[in-house]
Design a protein around this nucleic acid. Structure first.
Length: 113
DNA sequence: ACGCTGACTCCAC
DNA sequence: GGTGGAGCCAGCG
C-alpha cells in the first residue's frame, strides 16, 4: 500500500469518497502523507481521465470551487455530476461545502499493508 | 539527468 | 478583503 506510487495513492483515496460527498486536494494529499503536494493530487487526477472508477468530480479545491471542471469533457459536466448527487453548486462553488465535505483518515486509507 | 509544468495552498501587499 | 506572487513535489519531455 505504502509502496504505491503517489498517483496510485491519490486514486485510492479519491475512490473512497462516498456518494454525494466531496473532498479537497489538500485534504487528500494530507491523508496520503504528502500535505504539501496538493498540486500533485490534481495532477494525478488529470491522469485519471478515462478511469470511471475514480470520481474526480468529487474533488474540489479547499474553497469548494470546481477549479478542475475545465478538464472535463464539458464545462458543466463536473457540476452536473455533483448536482445529480445532491451537491448544491452556486457559481462554480459548492454551496453547502462544509456539510458535504468528506475528511479522509490516514488509518482508514492505509489500513491494508 | 535537468528542467518545466501543474485540477493547490499559503503569505504578503 | 481581493489580487498576486512564491513554494511545494512528483511525473514527464
Amino acid at each position: 500500500m505504502n509502496q504505491m506510487s503517489f498517483f496510485d495513492k491519490v486514486y485510492h483515496v479519491v475512490k473512497q469518497i462516498p456518494y454525494g460527498r466531496v473532498s479537497t486536494y489538500g485534504l487528500i494529499a494530507k491523508s496520503i502523507g504528502a500535505e504539501r503536494s496538493a498540486r500533485m493530487v490534481g495532477y494525478a487526477l488529470n491522469s485519471s481521465h478515462g478511469d470511471i472508477s475514480i470520481p474526480a468530480h468529487r474533488v474540489v479545491n479547499r474553497k469548494g470551487l470546481l477549479t478542475g471542471k475545465i478538464h472535463f469533457d464539458g464545462i458543466n459536466l463536473m457540476e452536473q455530476l455533483l448536482l445529480s448527487e445532491g451537491v448544491e453548486i452556486k457559481n462554480n462553488q459548492v454551496v453547502n461545502f462544509k456539510e458535504v465535505l468528506w475528511c479522509p483518515s490516514p488509518d482508514l486509507i492505509l489500513k491494508e499493508d
